[in-house]
Nucleic acid binder design. Sequence first.
DNA 1: CGTACTATTGAAGTGTATCAACAGCTGTGG
DNA 2: CCACAGCTGTTGATACACTTCAATAGTACG
Lengths: 247, 247
Amino acid sequence: MWLTIARGECMPIRFRCPRQDCEQNSCPAKQVFSCLSSEQDARLGRERLARRYDAGQVVVHLDTPALAVLSIHSGRVQLVRQSGGDAHKVVVGTRGPGDLLGVREVLSAMPYQVTVETLEPSVLCSVPREAFLDVVRDCPELAMRLLKTLARDFLVTEEQLAGRAHLSVAARTARLLVALVDGHRPAATAEAPAVSMSREEMALLVGTTRETISRSLHRLSEQGAVKLENGSIHIVDDAMLERISEL
Amino acid sequence: MWLTIARGECMPIRFRCPRQDCEQNSCPAKQVFSCLSSEQDARLGRERLARRYDAGQVVVHLDTPALAVLSIHSGRVQLVRQSGGDAHKVVVGTRGPGDLLGVREVLSAMPYQVTVETLEPSVLCSVPREAFLDVVRDCPELAMRLLKTLARDFLVTEEQLAGRAHLSVAARTARLLVALVDGHRPAATAEAPAVSMSREEMALLVGTTRETISRSLHRLSEQGAVKLENGSIHIVDDAMLERISEL
DNA sequence: CGTACTATTGAAGTGTATCAACAGCTGTGG
DNA sequence: CCACAGCTGTTGATACACTTCAATAGTACG
């Protein structure tokens, strides 16, 4: 069943999860919860609600009370912070399938500190706050998993924070590129790994402007670290990127 | 029993905890663990080791394997990151009595991502990695507490990250001042709250240099937001600071 | 074929780092 | 007691990376 909704609002639509896996436990959105007892799992099953979003929609808005934890079934989303009234948006991270949204706010009983925007058409499952807290309390293994991912994410954004202090845009751009291809490497080791990402998105992640990113990339290609080719960025000299990312 | 140790190294010294509270549960370093069963508590008691540090000492160093979680009994410490070789140090946060150090690294099985330096003479208790993980696994309440503080701290440093992107040094300085006095307010509501902090330390927290902090503060005092008086900073116009912290 | 969006490139303006000099204060040792 | 070095804070001059504004080129799409 589909609905049309006024633009600007989010467009949540109840729907039946399209993946058969969802009934088994291989669904990415349920992976974290795979350690639950069948009883707990049944509870989440009853309370869970899947919703579909178009690309570029706002899923949750800054300062909204955190009534649920969202788990990403498919698609990628951005965590956005406004700093300085609504003058500038800053992307503090991106999340993908299997990741949870709103855990920090639900745990610390605060309203949402970020705005979550979809980057692609996405499907998200929501788990009500109370149900989530209950299963976390009841399942030490789940708590440990959450602690682990929270700890890891924390360290990542702390590294970003450190980088913002004294690193040039070129260095941060290089870091972004390295981070983006780091996962994809072992598979296609023969080919030069490529990144295809809008300058706008890169700028928000690096914490700068489209223009400066453009200049940075062209500087990097002049130096021979990357090759620019109709929109996509091919990493040529990995070692050079690492070197540049320290300046 | 005291030892002297070559300079440059940390100077851990076994000692008997000076506070009587330590045997009860009001010791700040044990507060987080107050929910443990007497059996678990006894285990930590056996494995815990208190150490004293002078001001300005390095407690744990970047890239050292995280073999233990430290809990702060007294004193304040800085979390420092190096970015760009060893060119620049960036302070990503400060911790005080009752706070834990190294939780993130122990949980995610990584070496230390930060260097911890004491700001004052401090006493820290160390809990070995395995013992810590065991009690967390066994005590859901402790896990929940850790999740909560991790979540809160995470949100705080994420806000800092967002601020670094497009906010001026003046704005970030104002934010720092507001944050510093926020805790102290209700007590001395009649007096203008004051901050006494070295420019160096402020600079590291704001992510800039001593000189720029100095100029920023003097600009703020010209505008009438603060008053500078033999080293300490008196907050005069709170609302103005809030306004400036948005630019 | 035009509209709209994204990417590129140029030129000007500015905030901040950097280098440097100096003042104030503290502790040290002759 | 003074002289000296060492540290912190202040202030000025300069350099530069980045933002901002603006114009142009490339690309997708109806």
